[in-house]
């Protein structure tokens, strides 16, 4: 057992689990790659990881650092919270918000024109509430100091 651990790097059960999981992938992956042009599927599968791990995460991390330096620690979360919520809504619903889902109107008989205004209104409301809370906090702090 100790020899197995030394060579493999984990308990035997670890190997059993890995073999089962990768075995399932060996069955399912060819069927997945059968769903269309292999290159197109590969671009989506690999592209998803690259786009998220190597583009999106460094990008929003950098934006966050720049914004924190610009507005300071006291105010940053009043900017972060509405931005994060609005951005998440956009990430999920961007095809409707931007109108990129041009097949949508054809298929469902519903236009996509309203979505951008709704998203903008929600975003504006989030920033307004956040700014209001910041102002309230600032007034309260000033009173406490004064």
């Amino acid at each position: 057992m100790a020899a197995f651990r030394r060579i493999y790097g984990a308990r035997p059960m670890h190997l059993v689990g890995v073999v089962l999981a990768l075995g399932l992938a060996v069955i399912a992956l060819p069927k997945l790659l059968d769903a269309g042009p292999v290159m197109n599927l590969a671009i989506w599968l690999v592209g998803a990881i690259v786009l998220h791990d190597l583009v999106a995460v460094p990008a929003y991390g950098a934006i966050d650092r720049v914004a924190t330096r610009a507005v300071g620690v006291r105010a940053i979360n009043h900017l972060r919270v509405p931005t994060v919520i609005a951005a998440t809504l956009f990430v999920v619903y961007f095809p409707l918000i931007t109108g990129l889902a041009h097949g949508f109107q054809d298929a469902t008989g519903r236009g996509t024109g309203a979505y951008i205004w709704r998203w903008l209104a929600i975003t504006a409301a989030l920033y307004a509430v956040s700014a209001g809370l910041y102002a309230l906090r600032a007034v309260r702090n000033r009173r406490r100091v004064g």
């Binding site: 997945l32 197109n40 619903y93 097949g103």
Partner: peptide, 25 residues
């Protein structure tokens, strides 16, 4: 769900077998 298909594969097939690849892991 937004009827937006910026790919050339079958959604039903890819989403189903992709789920199995994911589930094992």
């Amino acid at each position: 769900v937004q009827i937006y298909y910026p790919w050339r594969f079958s959604f039903l097939e890819a989403h189903y077998y992709g789920a199995w690849v994911f589930l094992g892991a």
